[in-house]
Simulated assay, not measured.
Amino acid sequence: MSQHVSPDPEPERSSGLEPGGGVPPGETPPAESSMPEAGPRETHNPPKGWAKAPLALILVVTVLVAAFFLAYALVLLL
């Protein structure tokens, strides 16, 4: 089990904090990486890039639409 770290700053360990925990202008607030439990656990990381089947389907539909408009234009001209 991981150890939970409180995201609240500790005044004795944090420099530049104002009363109430605010950060004065010009100071950099604590980074998000200082809070290890900040987001949901990512258990599935999908592969990057396009799969071959969807890409081929998109290309086929594009060619068919372009051919339709080309044939339509030729019919109107003749």
Rank of each mutant, 00 (worst) to 15 (best):
S2I: 10
Q3C: 09
Q3R: 14
H4V: 14
V5P: 00
V5T: 09
S6F: 02
S6Y: 01
P7I: 02
D8E: 11
D8N: 10
E10C: 04
P11Y: 02
P11A: 05
P11V: 07
E12C: 03
R13G: 01
R13Y: 03
R13C: 04
S14Q: 07
S14G: 01
S15Q: 10
S15H: 05
G16M: 02
P19V: 08
G20A: 04
G21D: 04
G22S: 13
G22R: 12
V23A: 02
V23W: 06
V23L: 04
P24F: 01
P25E: 10
G26L: 01
G26K: 02
E27A: 15
E27L: 06
P29I: 06
P30L: 15
P30H: 09
A31K: 12
E32Y: 04
S33Q: 14
S33H: 11
S33V: 13
S34P: 01
S34C: 12
S34F: 06
M35S: 06
M35Q: 09
M35N: 15
P36I: 09
P36G: 02
P36H: 12
E37R: 03
A38D: 12
A38K: 15
A38T: 08
G39D: 13
G39I: 03
G39M: 10
P40K: 06
P40I: 06
P40Y: 04
P40R: 11
T43S: 09
T43C: 06
H44P: 01
N45G: 03
P46F: 06
P46K: 05
P46A: 08
P46G: 09
P46H: 06
P47V: 05
K48G: 14
K48A: 15
K48R: 13
K48Q: 14
W50A: 13
W50V: 07
W50L: 12
K52W: 13
P54V: 05
L55Q: 09
L55K: 08
L55H: 05
A56T: 12
L57I: 14
L57G: 15
L57A: 15
L57F: 13
L57P: 00
L57M: 14
V60D: 01
V61G: 08
T62Y: 05
T62V: 10
V65I: 15
V65E: 02
F68C: 00
F69E: 01
F69C: 02
A71P: 01
Y72M: 11
Y72I: 04
A73W: 07
L74I: 15
L77S: 11
L78V: 09
